[in-house]
C-alpha cells in the first residue's frame, strides 16, 4: 500500500527523548496522515515505545516538537492529549487488573460526557470483540493474555480516538489471535480511525501499513511504503528473520 494523499494528522519533528542520562530517541522525525496506518518497526531498544509514550505525553521531549492536527502537543500533560483525540493502547496492555472488563471500558471513555454516544461506542467495541461481552463482569486481571489485549484495544477505542496508538498489540499472543488482532486493526481503520502501530511482528506490520518507518537505536534508518519495505531484502535480513 502506498502513502495516502491526505492532510497530515501527526507531525513529529526532530524529537530527542531520554531517561536521565540515557537518550532513547535522537532527532526523530516522521508524520502520520489522516486515515493511514503507519507502522514503526525496529529491534528492541530502538526507541519505538519511547516515541509513542512521548506522543501521548507520558514523557516529554528534550528538543523538537510534536504537532497534532496543526496544534503543538509536546509538553502537554497526558490527560490533555487524550482530550485532543489521541488514544493509546500501551505496551504490556496495562489494563486495570482489579477492575471488571466493564469498568475498564468505562475508563476508556473517562473524558466523554455524552453518555448516549459512549453507549454506542461500547456497543461497537463489544461487536468488534464479542469475547469481551462474555467476560463483561469478570475482573480484567483474571483474563487470558489475548482477552486482555482485546480489552486494551477496546478500552482505547472507547475514547473515540482520531488517532489510535497501538504498542505491540500482538505481543505474547497465539498465532491465531495475532491474525485476529491484525484483522481488527484493518476494521478499525475502515471505521475512520487513523492508526500508528508499533510491532515486533515486523512483516505483518509492514503488510498492513500504508507507510512505515524503520528505527535503529533511536534514529530513523529507513522509511517507505509498507508493501515496498515488506519485500526489501535489507529489511528482510535485519528484521524479518532472513
Amino acid at each position: 500500500m502506498a502513502r495516502l494523499d491526505t492532510p497530515v494528522m501527526l507531525k513529529v519533528s526532530d524529537i530527542t527523548v531520554g531517561y536521565g542520562a540515557i537518550t532513547a530517541v535522537k532527532g526523530l522525525s516522521f508524520e502520520v496522515r489522516e486515515g493511514e496506518i503507519v507502522s514503526l518497526i525496529g529491534s528492541n531498544g530502538a526507541g519505538k515505545s519511547t516515541t509513542l509514550r512521548t506522543i501521548s505525553g507520558l514523557m516529554h521531549p528534550k528538543t523538537g516538537s510534536i504537532e497534532f492536527r496543526g496544534e503543538k502537543i509536546d509538553g502537554m500533560p497526558g490527560h490533555e492529549i487524550v482530550a485532543k483525540g489521541i488514544c493509546h493502547s500501551p505496551e504490556g496492555r496495562r489494563i486495570f487488573p482489579r477492575m471488571s472488563v466493564d469498568e475498564n471500558l468505562d475508563l476508556g471513555a473517562y473524558l466523554r460526557k455524552d453518555s448516549a454516544a459512549v453507549k454506542e461506542s461500547r456497543e461497537r467495541v463489544l461487536e468488534l470483540f464479542p469475547r469481551l461481552r462474555e467476560r463483561i463482569t469478570q475482573k480484567a486481571g483474571t483474563m487470558s493474555g489475548g482477552e486482555q489485549q482485546m480489552l486494551a484495544v477496546g478500552r482505547a477505542l472507547m475514547g473515540e480516538p482520531k488517532l489510535l496508538i497501538m504498542d505491540e498489540p500482538s505481543m505474547g499472543l497465539a498465532p491465531v489471535l495475532v491474525d485476529l488482532i491484525f484483522e481488527t486493526i484493518e476494521t478499525i481503520r475502515k471505521s475512520g480511525v487513523t492508526i500508528l502501530l508499533v510491532e515486533q511482528n515486523a512483516l505483518a506490520a509492514l503488510r498492513i501499513a500504508d507507510y512505515a518507518y524503520v528505527l535503529e537505536s533511536g534514529h530513523l534508518k529507513l522509511e517507505g511504503d509498507g508493501s515496498k519495505l515488506a519485500v526489501d531484502p535489507a529489511i528482510a535480513q535485519a528484521y524479518l528473520g532472513g
Binding site: 497526558g78 490527560h79 487524550v82 496495562r94 473524558l111
Partner: peptide, 16 residues
C-alpha cells in the same frame, strides 16, 4: 481506583 492501580495507564485514559 484506576490511579491506584496504574498511574501511566490512568493518564492514557485522560485522568488527571
Amino acid at each position: 481506583r484506576a490511579t491506584a492501580q496504574d498511574k501511566d495507564a490512568s493518564r492514557l485514559m485522560g485522568i488527571n
